[in-house]
């Protein structure tokens, strides 16, 4: 079965294997959900962030979401805000995302860049898409770009064979779900709760309802994000989602508990979290 379903356009002339479809397909074949791990590039510095992304891949993360730090991150909660502010203060640039993408691809996982739209717009949508593809990138997750505003990006991603991951939310109407799923490629990102990124004690029934409503409209995989912080929560989501997206918990692990300087301990915390989540997505547990 193919997961390359797009209603908006042909896949184009690019290398369609660049995207995440084959990885999610493989996870499905293994009877489990895919594990998607987020870290912002440049936190605490570019080198360490890339090492941490590679460590995630080595410890069981299937797809890496590389965040580009942005001055006005309206969908991020306090933990990721603090990390991306620090990354910007440390002089992180948009091009550092390409280095991270190359490293993640070389480590064996497809890298998706998560970026607020103005950074892509400023570089030029066509130029960015070509550079990302050349760096081994799998595509873009765009939290503040809706398909209605995305004509340039849809054309560029078709041309380069890049995935375009748009978001759906519990508030999404059937019309919006149709529009978003039709424009998406790779997977659909279901934001489990109404709110910003961050860990939550429970992801809640809204996520399951949203996944079911989305699935009714598309054959694309549906991955769930916002709020997951441990293997047990991942297991609950894996019961009904094609992928589980974890961000804030990884950032917190890499932030450490005020243990300045002990980078190796923080990288080990990232590995440990990845292993726990990788166990979770293989368990599939009734919530």
């Amino acid at each position: 079965m193919s997961t390359e379903v797009t209603a908006s356009a042909e896949p184009g002339t690019g290398d369609t294997d660049r995207g995440v479809a084959s990885v999610i397909e493989r996870c499905r074949a293994e009877g489990r959900a895919a594990l998607v791990g987020y870290l912002p590039v440049g936190f605490p510095d570019v080198e360490t962030s890339i090492r941490a992304m590679v460590a995630m891949v080595e410890s069981g993360v299937d797809i890496v979401e590389i965040g580009l730090p942005y001055s006005d991150p309206v969908i991020d909660g306090p933990v990721i805000q603090r990390a991306t502010e620090a990354a910007l203060r440390a002089g992180t640039h948009v091009v550092d995302g390409f280095r991270a993408a190359r490293a993640v691809r070389d480590a064996g996982a497809p890298p998706l860049v998560m970026s607020y739209w103005n950074l892509i717009l400023r570089r030029g949508v066509d130029r960015y898409a070509a550079e990302l593809a050349a760096a081994g990138g799998a595509g873009l997750i765009t939290p503040d770009l809706i398909p209605d505003e995305a004509a340039d990006w849809i054309a560029a991603s078709d041309r380069e064979g890049l995935d375009r991951v748009f978001l759906v939310a519990p508030s999404s109407t059937p019309e919006r779900l149709s529009r978003v799923t039709a424009a998406s490629r790779g997977f659909v990102y279901a934001a489990s709760t109404m709110g910003v990124t961050g860990e939550r004690a429970s992801v809640g029934p809204a996520a399951r309802d949203l996944v079911e409503r989305t699935r009714a409209l598309t054959e694309l995989p549906v991955c769930v994000g916002l709020g997951v912080s441990n293997g047990d929560q991942a297991a609950e989501l894996a019961e009904y989602a094609d992928g589980v997206i974890v961000g804030t918990a990884f950032v917190r692990a890499l932030t450490g508990d005020g243990q300045d300087g002990d980078v190796e301990a923080r990288l080990e915390a990232v590995r440990e979290l990845a292993r726990d989540l990788a166990r979770g997505v293989r368990e599939r547990r009734q919530s």
């Binding site: 309206v74 503040d144 809706i146 209605d148 505003e149 508030s171 109407t173 919006r176 978003v180 934001a191």
Partner: peptide, 22 residues
């Protein structure tokens, strides 16, 4: 061209979650 444009300017560059409210 989507609704709410003044030439090339304007639009809706917000999370999907807000679209129903808008």
């Amino acid at each position: 061209m989507t609704a709410g444009r003044f030439g090339d300017f304007g639009g809706r560059y917000v999370p999907e979650a807000l679209i129903p409210a808008l």
